[in-house]
């Protein structure tokens, strides 16, 4: 009873709904939600395409290696090709120089900028965040990301926009330095799915959710098994306790 009471209090202290701007986020039913969530691999592959063609020019995907792409259903050959398209800086060679070479499976994704300062310099002082953890680093991250990407609108008449900023309903302060990245048909999907803004936003969110938590499916599967085990364990020990305590008067 006491435990339940305290759990309820704890749960209520967590402000879930609000995006940075306090506006309730769009709530989507994601395939990865819940105890039986999965990574929708076809969607994730499309999402990768969106990342590569739209986002990768400014946003790094720091903690993902090319070999990780096998986990969302690309074949080894496909992933090798993707890696080889990238140019990686390696070295120093025997002359002491850094050199360029095509990417390998073991390489991390190449960043568009050498470091944060370079990124800021090209983007008017704003830093396009690394996307490999974006879904975990915002409360209700998947819904936030989807809302943000679909939340661009014309600024309300009364609002004065700063130079170079765009109005977004969900971004904290409503002014975001990133221009609306998605437009209908900005990407041509290889599987022929119609690339509406909504579709691309969903797909890239699914991809980035995987990128933030590649272990998610394994974790939830293991959780189900552990739960089943623990329930049996607890029932068994409850019965044992009852039987052993029978002789206490």
């Amino acid at each position: 009873m006491k435990k339940l009471f305290i759990i309820l209090i704890l749960l209520s202290t967590n402000a879930i709904a609000g995006g940075g701007s306090g506006v309730p986020l769009r709530d989507v039913k994601w395939p990865f939600d819940g105890a039986f969530g999965t990574v929708d691999r076809t969607a994730a592959q499309r999402g990768y395409q969106v990342y590569k063609e739209v986002c990768a020019s400014c946003h790094a995907l720091e903690y993902i290696s090319y070999r990780n792409l096998k986990e969302i259903g690309f074949s080894e050959a496909e992933v090798k090709a993707i890696a080889a398209e990238a140019t990686v800086i390696d070295g120093p060679n025997d002359d002491g120089d850094m050199f360029e070479r095509p990417g390998r499976l073991s390489d991390r994704f190449v960043s568009p900028f050498a470091n944060e300062k370079a990124a800021r310099a090209v983007n008017g002082g704003a830093y396009p965040p690394n996307l490999s953890l974006i879904v975990k680093s915002r409360p209700n991250g998947a819904n936030y990301l989807y809302s943000l990407l679909t939340g661009y609108q014309d600024a309300p008449g009364s609002m004065e926009m700063n130079e170079g900023m765009y109005y977004n309903k969900y971004f904290s302060g409503n002014q975001i330095a990133m221009a609306p990245p998605l437009m209908d048909e900005i990407v041509e999907y290889m599987d022929g799915t119609h690339p509406s803004v909504d579709q691309m936003a969903r797909d890239v969110t699914i991809f980035l959710q995987w990128a933030a938590e590649p272990e998610m499916e394994q974790r939830k599967r293991m959780g189900i098994k552990v739960f089943a085990y623990l329930i049996i364990f607890t029932i068994l020990f409850y019965l044992a306790k009852k039987i052993i305590w029978r002789d206490i008067k």
């Binding site: 435990k3 939830k220 959780g223 739960f227 364990f233 607890t234 052993i244």
Partner: peptide
């Protein structure tokens, strides 16, 4: 034996947060 039963309850709560 009562302690082991208690562990079961504790681990169930633990496992809920840990895995889900």
């Amino acid at each position: 034996v009562k302690d082991f039963f208690g562990f079961g309850i504790f681990f169930i709560i633990f496992a809920f947060f840990l895995f889900f």
